[in-house]
Write a protein that binds this DNA or RNA. Structure first.
Length: 326
DNA sequence: ATGGTTTTTACTGCGTC
DNA sequence: GACGCGGTAAAAACCAT
Protein backbone atom coordinates (compact mmCIF):
# COMPACT_ATOMS: atom_id res chain seq x y z
CA UNK A 1 0.00 0.00 0.00
CA UNK A 2 2.94 2.28 0.49
CA UNK A 3 3.80 2.71 -3.18
CA UNK A 4 0.36 3.57 -4.40
CA UNK A 5 -0.35 5.86 -1.55
CA UNK A 6 2.78 7.84 -2.15
CA UNK A 7 2.14 8.04 -5.83
CA UNK A 8 -1.38 9.21 -5.31
CA UNK A 9 -0.16 12.02 -3.18
CA UNK A 10 0.89 14.10 -6.10
CA UNK A 11 -2.57 13.82 -7.59
CA UNK A 12 -3.84 14.75 -4.22
CA UNK A 13 -1.81 17.88 -4.16
CA UNK A 14 -2.98 19.16 -7.51
CA UNK A 15 -6.56 18.42 -6.65
CA UNK A 16 -6.22 20.32 -3.48
CA UNK A 17 -4.83 23.31 -5.27
CA UNK A 18 -7.81 23.34 -7.55
CA UNK A 19 -10.16 23.13 -4.69
CA UNK A 20 -8.50 25.92 -2.81
CA UNK A 21 -8.78 28.27 -5.72
CA UNK A 22 -12.43 27.36 -6.21
CA UNK A 23 -13.18 27.92 -2.59
CA UNK A 24 -11.80 31.41 -2.73
CA UNK A 25 -13.86 32.17 -5.83
CA UNK A 26 -11.22 34.29 -7.49
CA UNK A 27 -9.62 34.52 -10.88
CA UNK A 28 -11.98 31.94 -12.33
CA UNK A 29 -13.40 32.70 -15.70
CA UNK A 30 -15.93 30.96 -17.83
CA UNK A 31 -14.31 29.06 -20.67
CA UNK A 32 -17.16 30.09 -23.00
CA UNK A 33 -17.75 33.77 -22.43
CA UNK A 34 -15.05 34.81 -19.98
CA UNK A 35 -17.56 35.84 -17.32
CA UNK A 36 -17.21 35.23 -13.59
CA UNK A 37 -17.73 31.74 -12.23
CA UNK A 38 -19.89 31.49 -9.15
CA UNK A 39 -20.18 28.38 -7.03
CA UNK A 40 -23.67 27.45 -5.99
CA UNK A 41 -23.07 25.46 -2.87
CA UNK A 42 -26.65 24.43 -2.43
CA UNK A 43 -26.61 22.57 -5.72
CA UNK A 44 -22.93 21.69 -5.63
CA UNK A 45 -22.46 23.40 -8.95
CA UNK A 46 -20.10 25.94 -10.37
CA UNK A 47 -21.94 28.22 -12.77
CA UNK A 48 -20.96 31.07 -15.03
CA UNK A 49 -22.40 34.33 -13.87
CA UNK A 50 -22.96 35.64 -17.39
CA UNK A 51 -23.95 32.83 -19.70
CA UNK A 52 -25.18 30.29 -17.14
CA UNK A 53 -22.81 27.57 -18.22
CA UNK A 54 -22.48 24.89 -15.62
CA UNK A 55 -18.79 24.19 -15.41
CA UNK A 56 -18.95 21.41 -12.86
CA UNK A 57 -21.72 19.84 -10.91
CA UNK A 58 -22.25 17.28 -8.20
CA UNK A 59 -18.63 17.40 -7.40
CA UNK A 60 -17.63 15.65 -4.24
CA UNK A 61 -14.04 15.31 -3.24
CA UNK A 62 -13.76 11.83 -1.83
CA UNK A 63 -10.10 12.05 -1.02
CA UNK A 64 -8.70 12.83 2.40
CA UNK A 65 -8.31 16.46 3.32
CA UNK A 66 -4.75 15.93 4.44
CA UNK A 67 -1.54 15.10 2.67
CA UNK A 68 0.92 12.39 3.58
CA UNK A 69 4.36 11.99 2.16
CA UNK A 70 5.15 8.48 3.27
CA UNK A 71 3.41 5.45 4.68
CA UNK A 72 4.16 6.29 8.27
CA UNK A 73 2.67 9.71 7.97
CA UNK A 74 -0.36 8.26 6.26
CA UNK A 75 -0.93 5.84 9.09
CA UNK A 76 -0.71 8.62 11.55
CA UNK A 77 -3.05 10.92 9.78
CA UNK A 78 -5.64 8.47 8.58
CA UNK A 79 -8.74 8.48 10.71
CA UNK A 80 -10.71 5.70 9.11
CA UNK A 81 -10.78 2.14 10.31
CA UNK A 82 -12.05 -1.27 9.31
CA UNK A 83 -14.88 -1.62 6.79
CA UNK A 84 -18.38 -1.76 8.19
CA UNK A 85 -20.61 -4.78 8.08
CA UNK A 86 -24.37 -5.06 8.22
CA UNK A 87 -24.08 -8.34 9.99
CA UNK A 88 -23.64 -6.68 13.31
CA UNK A 89 -26.24 -4.45 14.78
CA UNK A 90 -23.79 -1.57 15.04
CA UNK A 91 -22.14 -2.42 11.73
CA UNK A 92 -19.07 -3.48 13.60
CA UNK A 93 -18.33 0.04 14.70
CA UNK A 94 -18.34 -0.44 18.43
CA UNK A 95 -15.18 -1.04 20.30
CA UNK A 96 -14.08 -4.45 21.44
CA UNK A 97 -11.54 -4.89 24.14
CA UNK A 98 -10.00 -8.30 24.41
CA UNK A 99 -10.22 -10.15 27.63
CA UNK A 100 -6.66 -11.43 27.62
CA UNK A 101 -4.31 -9.09 29.39
CA UNK A 102 -1.88 -9.21 26.51
CA UNK A 103 -0.57 -6.45 24.33
CA UNK A 104 -0.51 -6.50 20.54
CA UNK A 105 2.60 -8.69 20.56
CA UNK A 106 1.21 -11.24 22.96
CA UNK A 107 3.21 -9.98 25.88
CA UNK A 108 1.59 -9.95 29.28
CA UNK A 109 0.63 -6.52 30.52
CA UNK A 110 2.05 -4.89 33.58
CA UNK A 111 -0.28 -4.82 36.54
CA UNK A 112 -0.71 -1.11 36.06
CA UNK A 113 -1.74 -1.67 32.47
CA UNK A 114 -4.03 -4.48 33.49
CA UNK A 115 -5.88 -2.21 35.85
CA UNK A 116 -6.18 0.39 33.16
CA UNK A 117 -7.62 -2.13 30.73
CA UNK A 118 -10.06 -3.29 33.33
CA UNK A 119 -11.34 0.23 33.75
CA UNK A 120 -11.60 0.62 30.00
CA UNK A 121 -13.61 -2.57 29.75
CA UNK A 122 -15.96 -1.28 32.37
CA UNK A 123 -16.55 1.96 30.56
CA UNK A 124 -16.74 0.37 27.19
CA UNK A 125 -19.39 -1.94 28.51
CA UNK A 126 -21.32 1.02 29.84
CA UNK A 127 -21.34 2.71 26.48
CA UNK A 128 -22.26 -0.48 24.76
CA UNK A 129 -25.26 -0.99 27.01
CA UNK A 130 -26.22 2.58 26.31
CA UNK A 131 -26.32 1.61 22.65
CA UNK A 132 -28.46 -1.40 23.40
CA UNK A 133 -30.76 0.86 25.34
CA UNK A 134 -31.23 3.00 22.29
CA UNK A 135 -32.31 -0.03 20.30
CA UNK A 136 -34.66 -1.13 23.06
CA UNK A 137 -36.12 2.29 23.10
CA UNK A 138 -36.73 2.27 19.40
CA UNK A 139 -38.62 -0.98 19.56
CA UNK A 140 -40.55 0.02 22.64
CA UNK A 141 -41.58 3.34 21.17
CA UNK A 142 -42.85 1.61 18.08
CA UNK A 143 -44.87 -0.71 20.25
CA UNK A 144 -46.27 2.13 22.31
CA UNK A 145 -47.27 3.95 19.16
CA UNK A 146 -49.01 0.90 17.78
CA UNK A 147 -51.02 0.27 20.91
CA UNK A 148 -51.83 3.93 21.39
CA UNK A 149 -53.34 4.24 17.95
CA UNK A 150 -55.25 1.02 18.44
CA UNK A 151 -56.75 2.52 21.57
CA UNK A 152 -57.27 5.93 20.05
CA UNK A 153 -55.05 7.65 22.55
CA UNK A 154 -53.80 11.14 21.70
CA UNK A 155 -50.21 12.10 21.11
CA UNK A 156 -49.54 13.57 24.49
CA UNK A 157 -50.26 10.20 26.06
CA UNK A 158 -47.77 8.57 23.74
CA UNK A 159 -45.19 11.10 24.72
CA UNK A 160 -45.84 10.59 28.38
CA UNK A 161 -45.57 6.87 27.86
CA UNK A 162 -42.25 7.36 26.10
CA UNK A 163 -40.96 9.44 28.95
CA UNK A 164 -42.00 6.82 31.46
CA UNK A 165 -40.38 4.11 29.42
CA UNK A 166 -37.18 6.09 29.14
CA UNK A 167 -37.08 6.55 32.86
CA UNK A 168 -37.65 2.85 33.40
CA UNK A 169 -34.77 2.19 31.05
CA UNK A 170 -32.50 4.65 32.81
CA UNK A 171 -33.28 3.15 36.17
CA UNK A 172 -32.42 -0.30 34.87
CA UNK A 173 -35.89 -1.66 35.42
CA UNK A 174 -35.76 -3.68 32.23
CA UNK A 175 -33.63 -6.69 33.10
CA UNK A 176 -35.89 -9.62 33.80
CA UNK A 177 -38.84 -7.96 32.13
CA UNK A 178 -39.93 -7.90 28.54
CA UNK A 179 -39.65 -4.75 26.51
CA UNK A 180 -43.25 -5.10 25.46
CA UNK A 181 -44.40 -5.60 29.00
CA UNK A 182 -42.76 -2.45 30.21
CA UNK A 183 -43.90 -0.58 27.13
CA UNK A 184 -47.47 -1.63 27.78
CA UNK A 185 -47.23 -0.74 31.44
CA UNK A 186 -45.85 2.67 30.50
CA UNK A 187 -48.73 3.30 28.17
CA UNK A 188 -51.23 2.19 30.77
CA UNK A 189 -49.68 4.51 33.32
CA UNK A 190 -49.50 7.37 30.85
CA UNK A 191 -53.14 6.99 29.87
CA UNK A 192 -54.17 7.15 33.48
CA UNK A 193 -51.95 10.08 34.22
CA UNK A 194 -53.31 11.99 31.28
CA UNK A 195 -56.86 11.55 32.48
CA UNK A 196 -57.83 9.38 29.52
CA UNK A 197 -57.59 6.01 31.21
CA UNK A 198 -58.09 2.72 29.50
CA UNK A 199 -59.01 -0.30 31.52
CA UNK A 200 -56.54 -3.07 31.99
CA UNK A 201 -58.68 -5.26 29.78
CA UNK A 202 -58.63 -2.79 26.94
CA UNK A 203 -54.90 -2.48 27.22
CA UNK A 204 -54.53 -6.23 27.28
CA UNK A 205 -56.48 -6.53 24.07
CA UNK A 206 -53.94 -4.58 22.07
CA UNK A 207 -50.83 -5.73 23.84
CA UNK A 208 -48.80 -8.80 23.07
CA UNK A 209 -48.39 -9.42 26.77
CA UNK A 210 -50.63 -11.22 29.20
CA UNK A 211 -52.78 -9.27 31.56
CA UNK A 212 -51.07 -10.55 34.66
CA UNK A 213 -47.69 -9.52 33.44
CA UNK A 214 -48.92 -6.08 32.50
CA UNK A 215 -50.43 -5.57 35.92
CA UNK A 216 -47.35 -6.84 37.65
CA UNK A 217 -45.00 -4.76 35.55
CA UNK A 218 -47.20 -1.73 35.95
CA UNK A 219 -47.15 -1.96 39.71
CA UNK A 220 -43.42 -2.46 39.64
CA UNK A 221 -42.77 0.50 37.37
CA UNK A 222 -45.06 2.77 39.34
CA UNK A 223 -43.36 1.83 42.57
CA UNK A 224 -39.82 2.10 41.30
CA UNK A 225 -40.32 5.38 39.53
CA UNK A 226 -42.48 6.83 42.28
CA UNK A 227 -45.10 7.74 39.75
CA UNK A 228 -48.00 9.43 41.39
CA UNK A 229 -51.10 8.03 39.87
CA UNK A 230 -54.38 8.63 41.57
CA UNK A 231 -57.07 6.03 41.20
CA UNK A 232 -58.76 6.71 37.92
CA UNK A 233 -61.54 9.26 38.06
CA UNK A 234 -64.81 7.62 37.03
CA UNK A 235 -65.79 10.80 35.22
CA UNK A 236 -63.01 10.30 32.71
CA UNK A 237 -64.74 7.19 31.39
CA UNK A 238 -68.09 8.86 30.97
CA UNK A 239 -67.59 10.60 27.62
CA UNK A 240 -66.37 7.47 25.95
CA UNK A 241 -69.19 5.29 27.25
CA UNK A 242 -71.77 7.93 26.45
CA UNK A 243 -70.61 8.29 22.90
CA UNK A 244 -70.34 4.55 22.41
CA UNK A 245 -73.97 4.31 23.45
CA UNK A 246 -75.05 7.32 21.40
CA UNK A 247 -76.38 9.13 24.41
CA UNK A 248 -77.32 12.78 24.47
CA UNK A 249 -75.13 15.48 25.95
CA UNK A 250 -77.79 15.92 28.59
CA UNK A 251 -77.42 12.32 29.70
CA UNK A 252 -73.69 12.69 29.78
CA UNK A 253 -74.02 15.81 31.89
CA UNK A 254 -76.28 14.04 34.35
CA UNK A 255 -73.89 11.14 34.57
CA UNK A 256 -71.18 13.56 35.56
CA UNK A 257 -73.28 15.23 38.20
CA UNK A 258 -74.30 11.85 39.52
CA UNK A 259 -70.68 11.00 39.99
CA UNK A 260 -70.01 14.37 41.56
CA UNK A 261 -72.58 13.88 44.29
CA UNK A 262 -71.40 10.33 44.76
CA UNK A 263 -67.93 11.65 45.26
CA UNK A 264 -69.11 14.13 47.84
CA UNK A 265 -70.93 11.39 49.67
CA UNK A 266 -67.83 9.26 49.53
CA UNK A 267 -69.64 6.37 47.90
CA UNK A 268 -66.71 5.55 45.75
CA UNK A 269 -64.02 4.02 47.84
CA UNK A 270 -62.59 0.73 46.84
CA UNK A 271 -65.18 0.41 44.12
CA UNK A 272 -63.99 0.05 40.59
CA UNK A 273 -64.11 3.41 38.79
CA UNK A 274 -65.22 1.73 35.60
CA UNK A 275 -68.20 0.19 37.33
CA UNK A 276 -69.12 3.51 38.84
CA UNK A 277 -68.87 5.26 35.51
CA UNK A 278 -70.93 2.58 33.80
CA UNK A 279 -73.58 2.78 36.49
CA UNK A 280 -73.69 6.55 36.25
CA UNK A 281 -74.13 6.39 32.50
CA UNK A 282 -76.88 3.84 32.84
CA UNK A 283 -78.65 5.83 35.55
CA UNK A 284 -78.34 9.01 33.53
CA UNK A 285 -79.87 7.29 30.54
CA UNK A 286 -82.81 6.26 32.68
CA UNK A 287 -83.26 9.78 33.99
CA UNK A 288 -83.29 11.24 30.51
CA UNK A 289 -85.55 8.52 29.14
CA UNK A 290 -83.06 7.21 26.67
CA UNK A 291 -83.22 3.55 26.02
CA UNK A 292 -80.12 1.70 27.03
CA UNK A 293 -80.12 -1.73 28.54
CA UNK A 294 -77.86 -2.79 31.31
CA UNK A 295 -76.51 -5.33 28.94
CA UNK A 296 -75.43 -2.69 26.44
CA UNK A 297 -73.70 -0.66 29.09
CA UNK A 298 -71.98 -3.72 30.44
CA UNK A 299 -70.76 -4.44 26.93
CA UNK A 300 -69.13 -1.10 26.27
CA UNK A 301 -67.80 -0.82 29.80
CA UNK A 302 -66.68 -4.39 30.13
CA UNK A 303 -68.33 -4.66 33.48
CA UNK A 304 -70.92 -7.09 34.73
CA UNK A 305 -74.57 -6.15 34.85
CA UNK A 306 -74.67 -7.01 38.50
CA UNK A 307 -72.08 -4.43 39.29
CA UNK A 308 -73.99 -1.84 37.30
CA UNK A 309 -77.12 -2.62 39.25
CA UNK A 310 -75.43 -2.40 42.59
CA UNK A 311 -73.65 0.82 41.77
CA UNK A 312 -76.48 2.68 40.19
CA UNK A 313 -78.73 2.04 43.14
CA UNK A 314 -76.12 3.58 45.36
CA UNK A 315 -75.73 6.49 43.01
CA UNK A 316 -79.42 7.23 42.95
CA UNK A 317 -79.65 6.89 46.69
CA UNK A 318 -76.85 9.36 47.19
CA UNK A 319 -78.53 11.74 44.78
CA UNK A 320 -81.84 11.43 46.61
CA UNK A 321 -80.38 12.13 49.99
CA UNK A 322 -78.86 15.37 48.81
CA UNK A 323 -81.77 16.39 46.66
CA UNK A 324 -84.84 14.65 48.05
CA UNK A 325 -86.79 16.08 45.16
CA UNK A 326 -85.88 13.84 42.25
C1' DA B 1 -50.09 -17.06 52.67
C1' DT B 2 -54.32 -14.92 54.55
C1' DG B 3 -58.48 -12.49 55.29
C1' DG B 4 -61.57 -8.98 53.92
C1' DT B 5 -63.71 -6.64 50.17
C1' DT B 6 -65.39 -6.29 45.52
C1' DT B 7 -66.68 -8.28 41.18
C1' DT B 8 -68.31 -11.98 38.49
C1' DT B 9 -70.88 -16.00 37.47
C1' DA B 10 -74.95 -18.50 37.45
C1' DC B 11 -79.54 -18.98 38.55
C1' DT B 12 -84.23 -17.45 39.74
C1' DG B 13 -88.60 -14.88 39.62
C1' DC B 14 -91.31 -11.09 37.88
C1' DG B 15 -93.39 -8.07 34.54
C1' DT B 16 -93.92 -6.56 29.70
C1' DC B 17 -94.00 -6.72 24.74
C1' DG C 1 -91.45 -17.15 24.77
C1' DA C 2 -87.97 -13.58 24.69
C1' DC C 3 -86.34 -9.80 26.90
C1' DG C 4 -85.09 -6.51 30.46
C1' DC C 5 -84.55 -6.15 35.16
C1' DG C 6 -83.80 -7.20 40.13
C1' DG C 7 -82.07 -10.10 43.63
C1' DT C 8 -79.12 -13.79 45.73
C1' DA C 9 -75.45 -17.09 46.78
C1' DA C 10 -71.23 -18.90 45.79
C1' DA C 11 -66.93 -18.48 43.28
C1' DA C 12 -63.30 -15.74 41.72
C1' DA C 13 -60.41 -11.79 41.73
C1' DC C 14 -58.24 -8.23 44.03
C1' DC C 15 -55.67 -5.91 47.66
C1' DA C 16 -53.28 -4.96 51.89
C1' DT C 17 -51.09 -7.17 55.48
Amino acid sequence: MTDTSIRSDSRERTRERVRESQDEEEDLVCPECGGNLVSDEERAETVCDDCGLVVSEGEIDRGPEWRAFDAKEKDEKSRVGAPTTKMMHDEGLSTNIGWQDKDAYGQALSSRQRQKMQRLRTWNERFRTRDSKERNLKQALGEIDRMASALGLPNNVRETASVIYRRALDENLLPGRSIEGVATASLYAAARQAGTPRSLDEITNVSRVEKDEIARTYRYVVRELNLEIQPADPVSYVPRFASDLNLSDEAERRARSLLETAKEKGIHSGKSPVGLAAAAVYAAALLTNEKVTQNEVSEVANISEVTIRNRYHELLEAEDRIQPEG
